[in-house]
Design a protein around this nucleic acid. Sequence first.
DNA 1: CTGTTAGCGCCTTCAT
DNA 2: ATGAAGGCGCTAACAG
Lengths: 334, 334
Amino acid sequence: MHKVTISDVAHEAGVSLQTVSRAINNKAEISPATRERILKISSEMGFRPSSLARNLATQQTTTIGIIVPDIANPFFSEIVRGAGDLADTKSYHVLLCNTDEDTRHEMSALESLLEKQVDGVILCSLRLEETDFLKTLDQFSAAVLINRDLSSPMQRVRTIAIDDRRGGFTAVNHLLAAGHRKIGFLVGPERSESGANRLKGYCDGLIEYSVRIDQDLVLYCEPSIAGGIHAANKLFESQQDVTGVLCFNDLTAIGAMKACSESGLDVPDDIAIIGFDDILFASFITPALTTMRIPTREIGTSAMRLLIDLMEDRVTTDSRIEFQMELVVRESAP
Amino acid sequence: MHKVTISDVAHEAGVSLQTVSRAINNKAEISPATRERILKISSEMGFRPSSLARNLATQQTTTIGIIVPDIANPFFSEIVRGAGDLADTKSYHVLLCNTDEDTRHEMSALESLLEKQVDGVILCSLRLEETDFLKTLDQFSAAVLINRDLSSPMQRVRTIAIDDRRGGFTAVNHLLAAGHRKIGFLVGPERSESGANRLKGYCDGLIEYSVRIDQDLVLYCEPSIAGGIHAANKLFESQQDVTGVLCFNDLTAIGAMKACSESGLDVPDDIAIIGFDDILFASFITPALTTMRIPTREIGTSAMRLLIDLMEDRVTTDSRIEFQMELVVRESAP
DNA sequence: CTGTTAGCGCCTTCAT
DNA sequence: ATGAAGGCGCTAACAG
């Protein structure tokens, strides 16, 4: 069974290639009668236009690349879902890449998306140094960064930011107001901009309460449950009078709570814990997790909307979009 | 800045198009010296071969389509992660589609993947009727179904199955052995084959214990937390002496537990609850969820491995692969 | 080992 | 409103 092409249809319909092309692309310069006839014939023949050929001719792929550290992390799967939903409604396709926060993976993902000639990319929590990815990024016709700012603006690149500094401030403030003074921070991966900015907010809060900033209370960690367990244990070993801990994300917070229970520490009586993200499960774990809610799905749809606007030259704004977090008080830090 | 093509490189190097093509594709018929020279020149010029053109010429895309109901569901995001990891190591790309279990979405996703000429597809928990998707499926050069059997074997299609019937049996057996006799089952979406098979296992178990099968104890539900809440409430309304509930997945189980707590029912003292999947969070919620573990990530990698074997004509087995579930006893059904 | 000649399947531009 | 020619960027098949 030979695949049916546009010329097969043309032959069958007794018209030229062109006319068929016009019919299937809803072009104006064609009589309704012949269009109907051709459409009928082509569907009878099971004709399916090849995107490949079309993309090569038009130099457009209607495909968006999305690069995330880990799709199994609910934070990113929500973003990808949001982005995917909007892509669907606009008839774009999504090419997904996981990087595990490995900068070499990030780089090779970028290059293969470039070769695939995607119309645009969405990059989540990129860890690459700016000098390392700028030249590559510049070759895309449009890009949106989530959780990552550029030192200087670029033509067709925009950022979806989260106000991490303020979020960090709000979180630590909640603990400070409750009387905590020795507050640890499992601040996430070293190269995370979110982590760095939340740390600034954390410092802002401490300063406001005239609490001395102690570097030993701040630990890097992997953004996973295992990472949380590990870092929390290290924290508790060296700092025995910590009464509150901020965690890079909810997974880390779950890990920290696990470390607490393994060390016989009660949450929240001995240690108060606050996460970031508010993943679906935050309210179902015990104690229910107090956390900074981030509107992940909305961020995903916004990113995709912004990207498509960029691609289609409809950029309404030249500034970055910034989302705010919202403190959700539950049991782990009442 | 005009994009540099293979002929630009050829011109610059003073060789033919072909020679450049050979160099970049590591073909044998070329002298090491000229290969090196061409490679050097092409990288200096920033040449990046166009996948589009290459794919059109070779009729291969090194791209796999994956269709899932919802990437934000941890069950599927784990599968996609597993599949993506293997795809990476084999230099394949992944095109992702969400369907929300909507059969029209499923169909349009299939068709657009066909137009994109992906080399293969992985279909998770497809809800389409077999008669509706068979003809389309047949047009792919390879496909792997997860959670879905075919009534008759197809050339280049394989199934990754989970032994749902046995899983359902094991689950209900755990409750029966603990003395429960009135056991509800929130059995998932109507068109779910997994649900249907688990139901069979549930019946097997009841029969073995000579317990009458009561249709009123079996309710369809959406595979989400909200779906679990809704269905559990309906169940509790009509059947007040239920002491155990099997739930389609862990999300549904979490919903059912929420319904319990809202109705003042204690889990597990008043009602024992068992889920399916063992998502990452099952052990962290309270009470910790007893559930049937499904090796999701492994299923993802197996699916991708099988698919690539199919595509590359290396099918070692012509039979379906079946995974077993494993009962993980925690607090919700001790 | 290297070059030439044909496509891959479609779209764009210009005629008619 | 329709058709013919040329090209998108690359690879396959054959020559030399």
